[in-house]
Amino acid sequence: MKLLAAGKRLRSPRRYAALGLMMVPGLLYLLINNYLPMFGVIIAFKDFNYTKGIFGSDWIGFKNFEYLFKTSDALLITRNTILYNAAFICLNLIVPTGVAIMLNEVRKRWLSRMYQTVILLPYLISMVIVGYLVYAMLSADTGFLGRTILPMLGLPDISWYSEPRYWPYILTAVHIWISAGSLSVIYLASIIGIDPEYYEAAMIDGAGKWQQIRRITIPLLAPVITIMTLLQIGRIFYSDFGLFYQVPLNAGALQSTTNVIDTYVYRALMTLGDVGMSSAAGVYQSLVGFVLVLVSNFVVRKLNKDHALF
């Protein structure tokens, strides 16, 4: 009876007014920072002219999109972007989760902290520097791999920067190297947030470590992992520009396996600096991501309502 009354009180408009008020600063920021500038999307469909302004410029339909589909590169960059992102999403599911669970198992606290600090290091290094470090490993004259490691194994040196076929592996490795640390910190925070009572109960039931991980940690981590994955799916047509431009050092010979939509657009518009065409690329990328997210969110909702994004 008391609960019912409380339930009614809980659903009173005043309560939700308080909650709504809490959202105001954040929503206001999104309005200014994101929604106001979205009028810029119409530039993608206009022949932008400085004198006429954004709204006064002439509509030109999809002309600004043409260069994205103009050559045989269109297929290539779409394929590369999707395959890389698919690989990244899969690996980001497995590696950081594993690392986070292991970090949580480390009993000596100072050691755990040291590991946490060290694995975050790659995330702090700018992509330009990462490019230098990779180059230090691979360069033809002075590379570490070519001068020290490969000869030790009795293998011939490879001229890495002119062999496109190795780069899917190199870039994937570099991506994981950079992102694993930061993602595992996020997952670790969620693992720490799990109520210890669950584990205590499991231990009383005689469950071993492995069982605890399988039956408690992973299921309770699932919502976070699902969200992170959905967020990545929404950005499947985007890619980390630095990774694909700086790390292969913009080597033309590698373009068949390193050119993605972002780098293509960058190279395409380097000389033109055209506002409309770059806006068109953004619209195209968001549109695909948008559709994919709607679909996957729908699937997730079917499986488990609570795990969905919206």
Partner: peptide, 17 residues
């Protein structure tokens, strides 16, 4: 010149150098 474009299309992760 390309930097402009790169930024305009929201690829904010470009390295600075």
């Amino acid at each position: 010149a390309g930097l402009a474009v790169l930024l305009a299309s929201g690829m904010l992760l470009a390295g600075c150098g």
